[in-house]
Simulated scan of single mutants.
Amino acid sequence: MSFTDRLRRERVIAIVRGTDPQAAERTVRTLREEGVALIEVSLTTPDAAGIIARCSREGGDSLIGAGTVLTGDDARAVHQAGAAFVVTPALAEGSVTAHALGLPVVAGALTPTEIVRAVSEGAAAVKLFPASVGGPAYLRALRDPLPGVPFVPTGGVDAEAARAYLEAGALAVGVGSPIVGDAPRGGDMDELRARCRAFLAALAAHRDQP
Results as ranks from 00 to 15, higher is better:
residue 122 G to M: 07
residue 98 A to Q: 11
residue 5 D to L: 10
residue 105 V to F: 02
residue 128 L to C: 06
residue 93 E to H: 07
residue 136 P to T: 02
residue 101 L to N: 08
residue 7 L to I: 12
residue 116 V to A: 13
residue 131 A to T: 02
residue 59 G to S: 02
residue 179 I to G: 02
residue 50 G to T: 06
residue 143 R to C: 01
residue 117 R to S: 05
residue 100 A to H: 12
residue 32 R to W: 00
residue 69 V to N: 08
residue 206 H to G: 00
residue 70 L to F: 14
residue 180 V to R: 07
residue 188 D to V: 11
residue 66 A to H: 13
residue 207 R to V: 04
residue 49 A to G: 02
residue 86 V to M: 11
residue 52 I to M: 12
residue 81 A to N: 13
residue 91 L to R: 09
residue 40 E to S: 12
residue 93 E to S: 05
residue 90 A to D: 10
residue 72 G to R: 03
residue 209 Q to N: 01
residue 8 R to H: 11
residue 96 V to F: 08
residue 30 T to R: 15
residue 167 E to P: 00
residue 180 V to N: 08
residue 186 G to P: 03
residue 133 V to K: 01
residue 191 E to D: 15
residue 89 P to W: 01
residue 204 A to D: 15
residue 190 D to L: 15
residue 142 L to T: 04
residue 171 L to V: 15
residue 116 V to F: 03
residue 41 V to Y: 08
residue 50 G to M: 07
residue 103 L to H: 10
residue 137 A to Y: 02
residue 2 S to G: 04
residue 10 E to D: 14
residue 145 P to Q: 05
residue 40 E to P: 08
residue 85 F to G: 05
residue 147 P to R: 04
residue 70 L to T: 11
residue 90 A to S: 14
residue 55 C to K: 03
residue 21 P to I: 11
residue 133 V to D: 03
residue 5 D to V: 08
residue 26 R to V: 00
residue 156 G to S: 13
residue 197 R to V: 11
residue 129 F to E: 01
residue 13 I to A: 01
residue 137 A to C: 01
residue 95 S to Y: 03
residue 190 D to I: 10
residue 37 A to N: 15
residue 111 T to K: 01
residue 191 E to W: 02
residue 168 A to L: 09
residue 154 T to G: 01
residue 171 L to A: 14
residue 189 M to W: 12
residue 117 R to P: 00
residue 8 R to K: 14
residue 157 V to F: 09
residue 18 G to A: 07
residue 194 A to Q: 13
residue 63 L to I: 14
residue 43 L to A: 11
residue 193 R to G: 12
residue 58 E to F: 10
residue 163 R to W: 04
residue 98 A to M: 07
residue 73 D to H: 06
residue 20 D to I: 11
residue 31 L to A: 00
residue 76 R to G: 09
residue 169 G to C: 05
residue 163 R to V: 15
residue 89 P to S: 04
residue 83 A to W: 09
residue 147 P to Q: 03
residue 23 A to Y: 04
residue 124 A to Y: 03
residue 210 P to Y: 02
residue 46 P to F: 04
residue 139 L to K: 07
residue 74 D to N: 15
residue 109 A to L: 09
residue 92 A to N: 15
residue 117 R to Q: 12
residue 200 L to I: 14
residue 73 D to Y: 00
residue 130 P to K: 12
residue 41 V to E: 10
residue 14 A to F: 09
residue 14 A to Q: 06
residue 3 F to C: 08
residue 2 S to I: 00
residue 43 L to P: 04
residue 161 A to K: 14
residue 66 A to C: 11
residue 105 V to D: 04
residue 157 V to N: 11
residue 189 M to R: 13
residue 88 T to C: 10
residue 128 L to W: 06
residue 193 R to S: 13
residue 66 A to T: 12
residue 131 A to P: 11
residue 146 L to H: 03
residue 68 T to G: 05
residue 91 L to N: 07
